[in-house]
């Protein structure tokens, strides 16, 4: 016991090739060495543990906080406005006299943009995903992918003014009855915005279809198109649908482009050439304006926000549920 320390140091030899020999220090004693750092080890381990826990908690607390604020202000709003009128009323004029609080025009505007952008994005997105996954050479795929990432990175406000200065004039040229602000231009730019999402998610799902399935279909005398349409796409279908839902939910929540492009006229219409207003655009309008806090007008944005939150959350939950089942298919 007198030879603590140097006597118990041994070294492990690791031979690398012929020449190099690296020695790792190794103690044969299992007893803990004495020292301040060693004695404090349980303490700073605990500090790190706690700090990381706080980081993880923040997102949970913020989510809960937002939902509570939305609910609290919405409940206040529903003291003044009946929930029936809110959900079934066909006129939305909270900032004008006489006031009407029917959310249907805003809901209709949001759904018009969501559906219109889906009509633009779904065929192009699915076609692109199929081309990239099944037909394109790896080299072409490597070229296209960065472009998709750039497309996904363009700020939505840029899409918004592109809609006004580029898309809208074209639409007005084709359909002279269209206004400067119209739903169609919003649909087109939002469709382009959600395109990268549909393409990358769908392409991942298509790629995850086992190669052996393609081989089996080829061995049965199918040609490339038949293999793609009859085997690969059906096998990936639920995942592809989930990618559509996630993208549409993004379109519903999209704010800047629709605020700029679609106008600020809450209108219960399905005509894409007219100016409309979406739920998000209304929230922008009120948040920026000089509506005094604490009034009914001011609280409308929380009720509208709650509706928006519920709509996108339901779509996301459905999409996640479908996606979670895709993985089980090939177990």
């Amino acid at each position: 016991m007198t030879e603590e320390g140097s006597g118990k140091e041994q070294s492990v030899e690791m031979e690398l090739g012929e020449a190099a020999v690296i020695k790792l220090p190794r103690s044969t004693s299992l007893a803990r060495a004495d020292g301040l750092l060693v004695r404090l080890r349980p303490f700073y381990e605990g500090v790190i543990h706690f700090a990381l826990f706080i980081c993880a908690s923040i997102s949970v607390l913020v989510t809960v906080g937002i939902v509570i604020i939305l609910l609290y202000e919405s409940v206040q709003f529903f003291f003044d406005v009946s929930i029936i009128e809110f959900l079934t009323g066909t006129r939305w004029t909270p900032l004008l006299k006489p006031q009407h609080f029917g959310i249907l025009p805003l809901m209709c505007g949001t759904m018009l943009v969501a559906a219109g952008s889906a009509i633009v994005a779904v065929p192009i997105g699915l076609g692109t995903a199929i081309y990239l996954s099944e037909y394109a050479s790896p080299r072409f795929r490597d070229i296209v992918k960065p472009f998709l990432e750039i497309l996904a990175g363009i700020p939505s406000v840029v899409y918004g003014y592109l809609a006004i200065v580029t898309v809208s004039p074209i639409i007005r040229y084709l359909f002279p009855s269209a206004g400067v602000f119209n739903a169609a231009s919003a649909c087109i730019v939002v469709g382009i915005m959600i395109l990268p999402m549909i393409i990358s998610l769908s392409e991942d799902i298509l790629q995850s279809v086992p190669l052996s399935l393609r081989g089996a279909a080829f061995a049965l005398g199918a040609n490339k198109f038949e293999v793609t349409v009859r085997v690969v796409v059906p096998a990936a279908l639920s995942g592809i649908i989930a990618s559509f839902l996630l993208a549409i939910s993004r379109a519903i929540g999209e704010t800047m482009a629709v605020t700029l492009a679609a106008g600020a006229t809450p209108k219960l219409t399905l005509n894409p050439l007219e100016s409309i207003q979406t739920m998000t655009a209304y929230i922008v309008q009120v948040s920026q304006g000089d509506t005094p806090t604490g009034t009914v007008e001011y609280r409308t944005i929380f009720a509208v926000g709650l509706m928006l939150f519920i709509t996108t959350m339901v779509m996301n939950v459905i999409a996640q549920y479908i996606l979670s089942r895709v993985g089980e298919q090939y177990e």
Partner: peptide, 18 residues
Amino acid sequence: VTLRKRIGMVFQKSTPFP
């Protein structure tokens, strides 16, 4: 396509389509 219809194939891993 004609060739593969005359010569069928079964693989090591069974490959039922979903």
